[in-house]
């Protein structure tokens, strides 16, 4: 036998034996990449980092987060179909963004709702209407009275146009029969900066900002039906008489066409991570509500969110 043949055969033998020693349940056996369509410091970026902190301890492999901010997340989501379907190239998905953007932007969105394939919903965050600490609006009733007294004059900041903050603004105004002026900002951080500077009267944002900004902003009401443990004093819009529920959901996504057994592996692995007591308590302290909707239930949940938000999406797109 010539030397190259020996080399070739031994390579084949090594490969085969590697294949044999790597059973199907050994996911992950190499680092996992998670693409995030927002910067590292915002609500979405932080939602990803909570998992990264303990991922390696729990699974034995590292989680590489790649931040690709742009177009309200669409920059990352438009690339999903190009990813490998092997469970190692994942993308963090935001809802209702992924429902609303394709409706508003059509072909220009770069992706369709069918490309969005969540395998594990792992957290949600309710939206709140908030003012800065120095604001004359001490309570929700003050703000509502001002909106009624001067229609269209009260300004509300929010992250992006046609996103979740915009959706909450629209839904609440419709339910309460009031109008205001929505001013879109680049991200949650610049929304809050403008609020604190007094440029806008109020904001629609997430409870996570209530944790982050503690004393400097005052949350007036939450778009949910039950109060949360972190802010027991914060009233819900439902108990105030306006049944508006609006949140943001985060899920781990795979490229369309990924086989079911791989989806199950990804879902199971990340479920182990987010159910870890330390990850769970880190997230709760940050204002993120734990939630576990694994594969295959995630598919029906996605369809439900799509139905729930399509009417709002069409209204905002006008």
């Amino acid at each position: 036998m010539k030397f190259p043949t020996v080399l070739f055969l031994s390579a084949v033998v090594t490969l085969v034996s590697l294949e044999a020693t790597a059973p199907a349940y050994a996911y992950p056996d190499k680092p996992v990449q998670l693409v995030v369509g927002f910067g590292p410091g915002g609500p979405t970026g932080i939602a990803a980092r909570f998992m990264q902190k303990r991922f390696e301890d729990i699974t034995g492999q590292s989680l590489n987060i790649v931040n690709k901010p742009g177009a309200g997340g669409a920059k990352a989501w438009s690339q999903i179909t190009k990813d490998k379907k092997d469970g190692y190239e994942l993308t963090l998905l935001n809802f209702p963004h992924t429902v609303l953007q394709p409706i508003a932007r059509g072909k220009n969105a770069g992706y369709t709702y069918d490309d969005i394939q969540p395998v594990l919903y792992y957290t949600s965050v309710p939206q709140v209407v908030a003012v800065r600490a120095e604001s004359p609006f001490k309570t929700f009733e003050d703000l509502l009275a001002a909106m009624k007294a001067s229609p269209g004059k009260i300004t509300f900041g929010g992250a992006g146009i046609g996103g979740s903050n915009h959706s909450a603004f629209y839904k609440f105004n419709k339910a309460a029969g009031v109008t205001g002026a929505y001013v879109p900002f680049k991200d949650s951080s610049s929304t809050i900066t403008a609020l604190k500077s007094g440029a806008t009267d109020a904001v629609w944002t997430f409870t996570t900002q209530g944790v982050k900004d503690g004393d400097s902003i005052r949350m007036l009401a939450m778009a949910a039906d039950t109060r949360i443990a972190l802010f027991p004093e914060l009233r819900t819009l439902t108990e105030l008489g306006y049944p508006v529920i609006d949140m943001a959901w985060w899920a781990i996504g795979v490229p369309p066409g990924t086989p079911d057994d791989i989806r199950k592996q990804v879902s199971d692995t990340f479920e182990k991570v987010v159910m870890n007591p330390e990850v769970k308590s880190d997230m709760e302290k940050g204002g993120y509500l734990p939630l576990v909707i694994p594969f295959p239930e995630s598919i029906t949940y996605k369809a439900k969110l799509g139905d729930d938000y399509s009417a709002v999406g069409k209204a905002l797109a006008k």
Binding site: G41, R49, K53, K212, G214, S216
Partner: peptide, 16 residues
């Protein structure tokens, strides 16, 4: 913004 995110994941409360 990155450092701020890191403080949040570390559980350090920021602000005045």
């Amino acid at each position: 913004a990155v450092i701020l995110g890191a403080m949040m994941v570390h559980g350090v409360q920021i602000g005045p």
